[in-house]
C-alpha cells in the first residue's frame, strides 16, 4: 500500500480546539510541514500568543513558549539572541499583533530580529468572542462594533504588511490567503521562504495569512471562505511586499 498522505511530524497528536471551519488548523499544518521539510523541527522554538491560538504550544511538535498578549516578538527576540543558530517563530493573531503588540512587532522588524512571524488575520477577535480588531473591515459587524465598523469611530483597518514593508529590517513580507487550495500552496511557499530567510540570517520575516472565523463572523465555513475572498482580499491585497535579493 502506498502512503499518499500522512499527518506532519511538525504537529503533535493533540486534537486542536479550533472551531469547525476555522483555518488556523490549515496554517498550523503548513508551518509544521515547513519545519519538517527544512529539517529544522528539532532546533525550532515557537512562541504562542494570546488569542485563539493561545494553545498553539500544545500543537506544534517543537519547544514552545507562551507569551503575554502582544509580546511574542519580544519573547522571540530574547530566545533568538540566546539561540542564534535555532529557528524561532511567533504565531500571532490580529488582536495580538496589530493591536496590543504593535510596538513589539514594529521594533522586532526595526531591529531586524532574525525570526519569523506567522500573522493570522481574520479581521476579528476570536477567543474573546468576536470583538472588533484593528483589521476589522469597514461596515463589518463585531460585538464591539454592533452597527458595523465606522471610519469616524474606529478609523480605517490597519494594513500590517504594507506598514512593516516600510521598515528596512523586515526583509521578507508577504500576504497570503488560505481560502482555496492554490492559495494554500502559495501560503506554504511563502512560509517556507520566510524560514529560509531566517536561517540564512538575513533579517526579520513575516507572512500575513488571511484567515476565516465562521463562528464570530456568524456564517458557515464555506460562506466564510467566499467572504474572505470577496471582502478581505480587495482591502488586503495578496502578494509579496519585500523579499531579499538573490545572492545578497
Amino acid at each position: 500500500m502506498t502512503v499518499v498522505y500522512e499527518k506532519t511530524k511538525g504537529l503533535t497528536e493533540k486534537q486542536t480546539h479550533y472551531c469547525p471551519g476555522c483555518t488556523h488548523g490549515v496554517i498550523h499544518k503548513l508551518v509544521g510541514e515547513v519545519l519538517v521539510e527544512l529539517g529544522i523541527l528539532g532546533k525550532t522554538v515557537g512562541v504562542a500568543p494570546v488569542g485563539c491560538s493561545v494553545l498553539a504550544y500544545d500543537y506544534f511538535n517543537c519547544d514552545m513558549h507562551e507569551a503575554a498578549h502582544g509580546r511574542a516578538p519580544a519573547v522571540a527576540t530574547g530566545i533568538k539572541r540566546v539561540l542564534p543558530d535555532h529557528a524561532v517563530f511567533t504565531y500571532q493573531g490580529d488582536g495580538d499583533l496589530a493591536s496590543i503588540g504593535t510596538a513589539e512587532i514594529v521594533h522586532a522588524a526595526h531591529r531586524g530580529e532574525k525570526f519569523t512571524t506567522i500573522f493570522v488575520n481574520n479581521a476579528i477577535y476570536g477567543m474573546t468572542g468576536g470583538q472588533m480588531a484593528p483589521t476589522t473591515l469597514i461596515g463589518q459587524k463585531a460585538t464591539t462594533s454592533p452597527y458595523g465598523r465606522s471610519v469616524a469611530d474606529a478609523g480605517m483597518p490597519l494594513r500590517v504588511s504594507e506598514m512593516l514593508a516600510t521598515i528596512d529590517g523586515a526583509v521578507f513580507v508577504e500576504r497570503v490567503s488560505v481560502h482555496d487550495v492554490p492559495n494554500i500552496r502559495k501560503a506554504k511557499k511563502a512560509i517556507k521562504k520566510a524560514f529560509e530567510v531566517q536561517m540564512e540570517g538575513k533579517g526579520f520575516g513575516i507572512v500575513e495569512v488571511l484567515s476565516t472565523c465562521p463562528t464570530n463572523w456568524g456564517i458557515s465555513p464555506i460562506e466564510s471562505l467566499s467572504w474572505l475572498k470577496e471582502n478581505m482580499i480587495p482591502y488586503y491585497p495578496l502578494g509579496n511586499f519585500r523579499t531579499p535579493e538573490e545572492g545578497k
Binding site: V47, A74, V75, T77, I79, V82, A103, V106, H107
Partner: peptide, 28 residues
C-alpha cells in the same frame, strides 16, 4: 562570546525579552 545587549523599545518589551531568554536557559 555569545553575549548580547538589546536596547528594547520599552520596559514592557525588555522584560518580555527576559522572559524569552530565561526560557531558553540563559542567565539574563
Amino acid at each position: 562570546e555569545g553575549g548580547a545587549f538589546v536596547q528594547a523599545e520599552s520596559e514592557v518589551a525588555a522584560i518580555n525579552m527576559i522572559y524569552g531568554a530565561a526560557g531558553a536557559g540563559a542567565r539574563c
